[in-house]
């Protein structure tokens, strides 16, 4: 058992080093500290980046001395994320955002241990208040609204009347975006042919690319899609010169001539709301649903794409209709 003894000694030595290791220096007081745990990379041009951009925007507004944030990316795996959540809470972050649906169960376990910390979980609508948890907020988006607007624009711009919609899996905000897009297209052009494809992967750009090419060969001249793997499809849109409508984060940079508009998730209103709530002592229980109305969903147009005036007007009218409720997407 000598080997075993050695390893135990090694571990013990490491543990000693750990105790002796300097704790990270404390940051100056007063700054509001936010930590976020994300399933993919901050530069994914999709779900994770939308949160990162939101935090950067809030920081710009409030000032670096008033608002600090730290992030942990590529934490799809729940145990890793749970460790990160607990660690941030231990380190005294004021607000810990678990930016992934899979983190819910762990968050519900951890949050009660840190009654002075505010937590947020998205996309979700459950704050675990029914289980007595008081410090979790939930946030999500009605992505079908923005999808609907983009669908209306797309139907006006398409010449072939064929549309390709690509997603990773038929669930969540991605499905809402795609279903909303379809509803918008159909409402504008009832004869439109809409094909939907799900690749079952959030990361396989090659598969998305192949799906997009298949759609274009089938005659589609407008594509949209969701998840970080769509960059593969956007490259196809660029190469084949068809139109692209984005989701989650601005995707103009990838194909400036082909991206017409993007439904951007701008989380900053929610972040600010939670900051204010937390400062006022309300740590959880808030369910926040992003819509066009509260400007968490933003239709961001590509300045380099010349959208005909009548189409732009129709889009604005659609946005207004969705905001005041005269238009319903019909997506469930």
């Amino acid at each position: 058992m000598k080997r075993l003894t050695c390893v135990i000694l090694l571990i013990a030595a490491l543990a000693l080093v750990a105790c002796a290791a300097p704790t990270p220096t404390a940051v100056p007081a007063k700054a509001f500290k936010v930590a976020v745990i994300m399933p993919s990379a901050i530069n994914d041009l999709a779900f994770s980046q939308s949160m990162y951009d939101g935090l950067v925007a809030v920081q710009k507004e409030m000032g670096k001395d008033k608002f600090e944030f730290a992030y942990t990316e590529n934490m799809f795996n729940v145990p890793d994320a749970a460790a990160a959540i607990r660690d941030y809470a231990t380190k005294g972050y004021d607000l810990v955002i678990a930016h992934g649906s899979q983190y819910g169960a762990s968050l519900a376990d951890i949050a009660p241990d840190f009654p002075k910390t505010a937590f947020a979980w998205g996309t979700a609508v459950d704050t675990f208040a029914s289980k007595g948890v008081k410090n979790i907020n939930a946030y999500t988006v009605q992505a079908d609204q923005g999808g609907y607007v983009l669908g209306v624009i797309a139907a006006k711009l398409s010449k072939s009347g064929k549309f390709g919609l690509i997603g990773p899996i038929p669930a969540g905000d991605g499905k809402l975006h795609i279903d909303g897009f379809e509803a918008g297209v159909k409402a504008t052009n009832p004869k439109a042919i809409v094909s939907k494809t799900f690749t079952q992967s959030f990361s396989d750009a090659a598969l998305m690319s192949q799906a997009a090419q298949t759609m274009v060969s089938g005659g589609a001249d407008v594509l949209t899609g969701t998840s970080q793997a769509v960059v593969g499809a956007i490259a196809v849109a660029k190469e084949k010169n068809v139109l692209w409508f984005g989701n989650q984060s601005s995707q103009v940079s990838l194909a400036p001539k082909n991206v017409v508009a993007t439904q951007v998730y701008d989380w900053s209103p929610f972040i600010k709301q939670m900051v204010n709530n937390t400062k006022a002592g309300k740590l959880g229980g808030e369910v926040m649903v992003g819509t066009l109305k509260n400007k968490v969903l933003v239709i961001q147009y590509n300045p380099d794409y010349k959208l005909p005036d009548d189409v732009k007007a129709l889009a604005d009218k659609t946005v207004q209709g969705l905001i005041d409720g005269t238009i319903q997407t019909g997506v469930k």
Partner: peptide
């Protein structure tokens, strides 16, 4: 062939198991 011929992009884990 993936990054400069078929897909013309790069992303983390571009090859995804190929």
């Amino acid at each position: 062939s993936l990054s400069i011929a078929l897909l013309n992009i790069f992303q983390q884990n571009l090859t995804s198991g190929q």
